[in-house]
Design a protein around this nucleic acid. Structure first.
Lengths: 351, 351
DNA sequence: CCGTTGAATGTTTACGTAAACATTGCTGTG
DNA sequence: CACAGCAATGTTTACGTAAACATTCAACGG
C-alpha cells in the first residue's frame, strides 16, 4: 500500500490555539475549552479568548481535530458519471442529508466503470479523509474484485454490490410492473422494451420484470431492444422501430414502448417524430426516472417516478447507523417506492 | 469562532505506522520511508515492511499527514443546486481536473442562495479540511457580505463575486450575440427574450447583450420576459406568448424567442405546442447551455453551447496557481468561448 | 475555624506522521 | 590502511488539538 512519492514541504497554516492563548494570556487548554464549549470558563476569560480568536482570525485546525478524534465528519461518494440525472440528484440528496447530520461529502469520480477503475478510486479515497463510503451505480463492478479498506462502513445504491453491502435501491419491480401494466390496460396488445446496458443491475431487473409482467398477462414478448442509457441510443433504436412500424406487417407493429430511462425515451421519441409517427397516437412511450424535463418534453412523458431524495437520505442513514451503533448491516436493504406518473405520451392504440 | 459543542469520543482507527514497524522489526521511520517512497531502504527491508503493511491492512492516516503537511489535497466547492445541469457538469469537470492534480473535492451545498446561506456554508467549510475554495453560481451573494477565511485561495464562476476574486466565466456576450444575430439573419423582424432571474449575473449580461444586439441592428426591442431558469417558468411564459401570437395584431406577433437557458426553452416549446403553434414554422426558439437533451427535444434545439469541462479545469487551474506560486490573481478573469449550435428549432419566419 | 467541595485554570500526554538530525557500518581512495 | 563518503537505519521532535490529570482558591457546612 505504497502511496506515490509525495514530497511536500509544509505549507503555511493559520494561527494556532497557542497563538490565541498567548494573546489572551491564558493556557492553550482554556482556549480549547472555549473553542469546543466543554468545561467551565469564567465569563470574562471567555470574552478575552473570543476577542483574541477574532483578532487573529483563528479557526481550529481540522486535521489536528480529526487526528485527535479519529473521525473526519466526512463521507466519500464514488460516482461514475455524476452529471447524469440519477447520479447528480442522488448526490444532491446525499449532500443535504449528510449536512443535516453534520457531515460533508467528498466526491470521487471513477475514470472507467470497471473494477480496476473503482479500485483505483478506492485507493485515492483511503488516502482521503472519510468515515464512510457511498457507492452509487457501480454497474460493472463485481463484488469480489473490489478491495475495500477494512472497517470502513459502506453503503451502495443500484449496483451489483448490493448483495455484499447494505444497500438502498428503488423498487424496480413495482415501478416496471406499473408502467407495463398501464400500457396493457390502455389496450395495447403487447409492450416493447428498450433496456439499459446488461452490465447494469437495475437495467436487468427492469427487463426481467417487463418480461415477467407480459408473460403473466399472457402476452407475446417482443425481442428485447438494448441501449446504453443515452438519448443517442434511444434515437438509434427509435429509427429502427419507426421503420418496423411503417413497413412491417400490421400484426407485428409496435404500438407501445417502455424505455428503461427517460433520456432514451427522449431520443426514441425524436426518432419517431422524424419518421412522421405521432406519440401517443401511433406509438405510446413510457420512461423511467421522471427527470425534471420529462414533464416538458412534447408530448409530456409518462414515466416511473424515482424518489432520489429518499434514496440519498436512506444512504446517509444507513451509514450513520453503522457508525454510531457499530451495527453490522450486511443484509439490510432499503427499498424506496416508485410511482407511475401518467402524462400524455401514452394513450390507447389507434385501431 | 466557536464551533458547536462536539463531544466526540475517539473512534477506533486502523493500524498505525508503529504497528507495522513492530511487526516488520524496524523503526517507524523506516516504515514511513517505504510509505512515502522517500529515503533509501534496502530491498529486503522494504519487502518486509510491505508484507507487514499488507498483513495488517495498513493505510496511512490522512489526518496525521495533513497535520504534518499543512495541506489536505482537497478543494471545497460551494454549489447551490447541484442537480441543475450547469452546476453538475461544472462540478463533474472540476472533480476530474482536481483528480488530475492529485486533489479531491468536497461538496458543500447552500441551503438558501443568500449571503447568509453562503456564509453559513463557509463556516462549515472552514471546519472542513480544504486548501482552496470554488464558488459557483452564487447568484444572490454580494461580495461585501461574504466573510471568507483569510489566506484561503478562492475562485468563482458565474457570480457577482467575479469582481472580487479570480474568476472563470463563459463568454456570455459573444454567445448571446451569436444567438440573436442568427435569428435576425434568418429574417426575423426582432427577437423576444426570456431572461433568467435578475439576481443572476449571467442572466443580466445575456439580457443586456440581447438588447444591445437588437439596438445595434436597428430593431425594435420587445418587452423583456423574465423567468427563473426552470422549465415551469418557460411553460408559463410560453402560454402568454402563445396567446399574444394567436390573438394580437400581426405586427406585434413574436416570431422568434431567445431563452436564457435550455430548460426554459423546453417549457416554452411545450406551451407553444399545446397552443397548436409549430416550432420553428410559427415561432423560432433558441436556448443557452446546450444540455445533452437539447439535441433530442422535438424539434432539436438551436442553442449556445457552453464548454463546462473547460470551465471546470480553468477553475482548478486558477486555484493551483494560487496555491503553488502564491500568486495574487485578484484581477484574473478566464473567459471560456461559446459556440452556437444550430439545430431545427430555428428557421426563417413564415410570411 | 478547619476541612471539604467544586469552579476555574494549568500541565502533561497522546493522536499518527515525517522531517531533521544522529548513528552505524561498509566501500573505495590516496 | 586510515578515513572520507555514503547507504541504511534509528532517535528526536513537532505539527495542533483536547482528554486526563493536577493545581489553585474561594465558599460553605459542621
Amino acid at each position: 500500500m505504497t502511496s506515490p512519492a509525495v514530497t511536500r514541504s509544509r505549507q503555511a497554516t493559520g494561527p494556532s490555539i497557542s497563538d490565541v492563548a498567548r494573546l489572551a494570556g491564558v493556557s492553550a487548554q482554556t482556549v480549547s475549552r472555549v473553542s469546543t464549549g466543554t468545561g467551565p470558563v469564567r465569563h470574562e476569560t471567555k470574552e478575552r479568548v473570543l476577542a483574541a480568536m477574532a483578532a487573529l482570525g483563528y479557526s481550529p485546525n481540522t486535521a489536528a481535530r480529526a487526528l485527535k478524534y479519529g473521525s473526519y465528519r466526512t463521507f466519500g461518494i464514488v460516482a461514475h458519471q455524476l452529471a447524469r440525472t440519477g447520479e447528480s440528484r442522488t448526490i444532491e440528496a446525499v449532500v443535504e442529508a449528510a449536512r443535516g447530520a453534520g457531515y460533508t461529502v467528498t466526491l470521487v469520480d471513477v475514470e472507467s466503470p470497471s473494477s480496476s477503475g473503482v479500485n483505483e478510486a478506492m485507493v485515492r479515497l483511503t488516502q482521503q479523509a472519510i468515515d464512510g463510503l457511498i457507492i452509487i451505480r457501480a454497474e460493472t463492478v463485481t463484488p469480489t474484485a473490489l478491495t475495500l479498506p477494512p472497517n470502513l462502513p459502506v453503503v451502495v445504491s443500484d449496483s451489483r454490490l448490493a448483495s455484499h453491502h447494505p444497500a438502498v435501491g428503488t423498487d424496480q419491480v413495482t415501478g416496471t410492473r406499473q408502467a407495463v401494466e398501464h400500457l396493457l390496460a390502455l389496450g395495447h396488445r403487447t409492450v416493447h422494451h428498450l433496456a439499459g446496458p446488461d452490465s447494469s443491475d437495475p437495467a436487468r431487473i427492469r427487463a426481467a420484470t417487463w418480461r415477467a409482467t407480459l408473460l403473466a398477462a399472457g402476452r407475446e414478448v417482443p425481442a428485447l431492444l438494448t441501449g446504453d442509457w443515452t438519448s443517442e441510443a434511444g434515437y438509434r433504436v427509435g429509427q429502427e422501430l419507426a421503420v418496423a412500424t411503417t413497413s412491417g406487417p400490421t400484426e407485428a407493429r409496435p404500438t407501445a414502448v417502455f424505455t428503461s430511462n427517460d433520456e432514451m425515451a427522449f431520443g426514441l421519441i425524436r426518432a419517431l417524430h422524424e419518421h412522421g409517427l405521432r406519440v401517443p397516437q401511433d406509438i405510446s412511450v413510457a420512461g423511467f426516472d421522471d427527470i425534471p424535463l420529462a414533464a416538458y418534453l412534447w408530448p409530456p412523458l409518462t414515466t416511473v417516478h424515482q424518489d432520489f431524495p429518499a434514496i440519498g437520505s436512506a444512504l446517509v442513514e444507513l451509514l450513520l447507523r453503522q457508525l454510531n451503533q457499530r451495527e453490522v448491516l450486511t443484509d439490510t436493504r432499503v427499498v424506496v417506492p416508485t410511482r407511475l406518473v401518467v402524462r400524455e405520451s401514452t394513450a390507447p392504440p389507434q385501431v
